[in-house]
Write a protein that binds this DNA or RNA. Structure first.
Lengths: 362, 362
DNA sequence: TAGAGCCTGGACAACGTTGTCAGATGCACG
DNA sequence: CGTGCATCTGACAACGTTGTCCAGGCTCTA
C-alpha cells in the first residue's frame, strides 16, 4: 500500500549539531537568517534592511539592490513573531466553531476567511466539538496568541471568561448562537421565524400531528426552533402532544429512535420537522424505509436535497452570509468603530421541493 | 431584519487616549498587563511569575498563591507572541487547501486539526482557491509566522519556492496531490487504481462506450484518474473515442455541457465516470433528467448518495484518513525523525449502490 | 554551633523586529 | 571654499517572554 520513494532530500538537522539539547536560543528555526545577517552580508545597517523588507521610503536604489541580493542569497524571510511583538497587531483572527467537518460550517468558515483575506489577516481556527470546556480552552489559546479578533460559534452558555479579553481590546463577534451572560455582537439566523414558517407550511398542507426533532436543549438554536414550532402550532390551535417533541444529541441512533417513536406512538405524527441538517439526513433515511409517506421539512439546506424523491423541503439559512456578516462586523470593530453591541438576525428562506407538501397519510 | 440591542457595553478605546498616534509601543493590546505588572503587584520577581504561569517547580505554595491572585486580579494572560520569539517553536501548523467549503476538505481539515490538537498545536488554514500564486502567497505568509510545519494540498505544480523554508526546518507534507519539482513527503489516494477499478466495474456490467469527465489537466489527480480510465479501457481492448473524454473546470456549466455532449455525440456513451465529487453531483443532475438510464460511477463519496434512486456507486477515498496520515507524518518530522521523503498511497474503496450496475441502455 | 547542601527567588540577557533620533553624506548656492 | 539643507543611514531601545546563573536563607548533620 505504501511505497517508499527512493530519492533522498536535504533535511534540516542532517548536520552534526546536537539534536535537541541546544540551550539558549540558537539554531532554533534551523538557523534562519535574521535581518542582522542580511545587514552584515549587504554591508548596511539593520534598520536599512528593515526598510527594504517593508518597502519603506528613504533607501537609494543601489542600496536596495544590495540588500535584496543578500536577502535572496540567504533565503531570508521576516520573522512575523518578532514583528507582532513589536507592533502589537498580529493580523490574524480566530474562528472557533463546532465541527469543521459539518457541511454547514464549511461555507461559513470560507466566508470568514475571504473577509479576513481582504483585510490582510490570516485565519486560525479550531473545533470545539460542542464541548464548552474545549471552546474556552481554544478561545483563550487564541487570545494568548493575541489574535486581533475572534469569531465564535459558542458551544457553552457562559462567556464571562471572555470579559477581560474583550476589555483588553480583542474584537469579538458571535455567530449562529448568542453568547451567554455577556453582551457582544452576534449574527444569527432567524431560527424562531424559520421554524414557525416551516411548521406552518406543514399545517397548511393539512397536518395536525407534527413531530419536532431537535438538538440538545443546551443549544440556543434548538430552543428557538422549538419555540417556533410551538408558536405555529398554537396559532393553528393545535395542542402539542409532548410525545411529538424530542430534543437531544443529533447522532443517527438517537434521531432514528426518536423518529420511530413518534411514528408509532399513541398519536402517530403524519409529518416531521427536523431541527438541523444532521437530523434531517437521518430522518430522511428513516422515512425512506417506510411504506406510507410522511411529510418532512428540515431546518438547513442539504446537498442533493432536490434529487431525492420526494425532494426535501427545507428552511434554508445562508451560512456564507452569516460568516461574511460576522467577519465584516469584526473588522469594523477592529477599524475602531465603537458601536454598541448589536444583534443581527438574517432571514431564512423556505424552499419547497415536495417532502413538505405531502398530504397527511391518514 | 436587523434589530439593535439596547444595552451598551464597555469598549476598549473608550477612554481619552489618542486614537492611533501612539508612537512607540504603549497601550497596544489595550494595555494588557504583563508579567512585570503581575510581579510588581505580587511583590515578587519577574521570573517567579513566569514559573507560576508555566507550572515550573521551585515556587513555595504561598508565593504561588500571591502570584495567582495578582494574575486573576489583573486579568493577565501570557503573550504567546513573545513566548514564541523566545522559544523558537510556535506550536502551530499551517494547512493550505483548495476550498474549505468543499465537503471533501471538511473531514480532512478536521482530521489534521485533531492530530494537531493532540500535539498541542493550533491550526492556521487558508484556501488557495486553486490558484498557484495564492497558494504560494499563503504558504510564505505561514512561513513568516514561523509555523512549525505545513500541510499543503497543492494548487500549483512548482514548489521550488519552498526549498529555503524546508532547508530552514519547516516540516512539510503534501496531501492529495504530489508537490512539483521538489522532493517531499506526500500522502495520496490511489487515484489511478481507484479510477481503473471504477471503470472496470462499468465494463464488467456490459458497458463499452464510457465517458470520463474530470478536473483540469493541470491537476495531478485528474491526470491519474484519466490514466486509470484508459488503463481499464485498454485492458478490455476498448478503443477510446476522444469525444468521450473531457477535462476542465468542475463548475456546473462546463460539466453539464460535457455530459450532454457525450450523451448525444456520434458514439453516445452508455455510462459515465465522474472524476470527483463536484463533477458527480452535476452529472447526477443531468442524468436524472434523462428518459433512459445511464450508468454512473463517481470518484469521491457524496452525502446522501445512498438515498438517490438509483444510489450512486462511487470510488470512495477516506479524506479523514488522508488528513490524519499527513498530520501524523508531519509531527513525526517535527519530533526529529529524518526519514527520507516518502510517498504514501491510501487505497480507495468501490461502494456499489445501483448507478454503476445499470446495464447499457442500447 | 558551624559547615555543607538544598531550595527559593531575582537580576540579566537574549530572541528578531521596528520606532526614534542623531549622525553622515551629498548637493546647491552664496 | 564654506555654509545650509535635504536625504540617506545606522545605533539604540523597547516589545514580553524564558534560560542562565548567582545570592541568600533555610535545614540537616557532625
Amino acid at each position: 500500500m505504501a511505497e517508499t520513494a527512493r530519492t533522498p532530500v536535504s533535511r534540516p538537522r542532517a548536520d552534526g549539531s546536537p539534536s535537541d539539547g541546544a540551550a539558549d536560543a540558537k539554531s532554533r528555526y534551523g538557523n534562519r537568517p535574521t535581518m542582522k545577517d542580511v545587514a552584515a552580508r549587504a554591508g548596511v545597517g539593520l534598520k536599512t534592511v528593515s526598510r527594504v523588507v517593508n518597502g519603506e521610503p528613504g533607501v537609494t536604489p543601489d542600496t536596495e539592490r544590495r540588500v535584496q541580493e543578500a536577502i535572496d542569497a540567504l533565503g531570508f524571510r521576516r520573522n512575523d513573531s518578532a514583528r507582532v511583538l513589536r507592533k502589537g497587531r498580529t493580523a490574524s483572527i480566530g474562528l472557533v466553531l463546532e465541527d469543521l467537518a459539518d457541511p454547514f460550517y464549511g461555507p461559513l468558515s470560507r466566508a470568514v476567511e475571504e473577509v479576513a483575506r481582504a483585510h490582510g489577516a490570516l485565519l486560525i481556527n479550531g473545533s470545539s466539538a460542542e464541548d464548552p470546556d474545549r471552546e474556552q480552552e481554544l478561545v483563550l489559546a487564541l487570545c494568548a496568541r493575541r489574535v486581533d479578533g475572534l469569531v465564535v460559534i459558542p458551544a457553552g452558555d457562559d462567556h464571562r471568561y471572555l470579559e477581560p479579553e474583550i476589555a483588553a481590546g480583542v474584537a469579538t463577534v458571535f455567530v449562529d448562537r448568542p453568547p451567554g451572560r455577556i453582551d457582544a455582537d452576534v449574527v444569527l439566523s432567524d431560527s424562531f421565524g424559520g421554524a414557525r414558517d416551516g411548521v406552518a407550511h406543514l399545517i397548511a398542507h393539512g397536518h395536525r400531528r407534527i413531530g419536532f426533532i431537535g438538538d440538545q436543549p443546551r443549544i440556543h438554536t434548538a430552543i428557538e426552533r422549538l419555540r417556533g414550532y410551538r408558536a405555529a402550532m398554537a396559532e393553528a390551535d393545535i395542542d402539542v402532544d409532548e410525545s411529538w417533541v424530542s430534543l437531544g444529541p443529533t447522532g443517527p441512533e438517537r434521531v432514528r429512535h426518536a423518529t420511530e417513536a413518534m411514528l408509532t406512538g399513541p398519536a402517530p405524527v403524519t409529518a416531521v420537522f427536523a431541527g438541523n441538517n444532521r437530523v434531517t439526513v437521518t430522518v430522511v433515511r428513516v422515512l425512506a424505509a417506510l411504506p406510507r409517506p410522511v411529510a418532512l421539512v428540515g431546518f438547513d439546506d442539504i446537498e442533493l436535497a432536490d434529487l431525492l424523491s420526494p425532494g426535501v423541503t427545507v428552511v434554508a439559512q445562508d451560512a456564507a452570509q452569516l460568516g461574511r456578516t460576522a467577519a465584516e462586523r469584526l473588522f469594523r470593530q477592529l477599524d475602531g468603530a465603537s458601536d454598541a453591541p448589536e444583534r443581527i438576525e438574517l432571514p431564512t428562506r423556505l424552499i419547497t421541493r415536495g417532502s413538505g407538501e405531502l398530504a397527511p397519510a391518514d
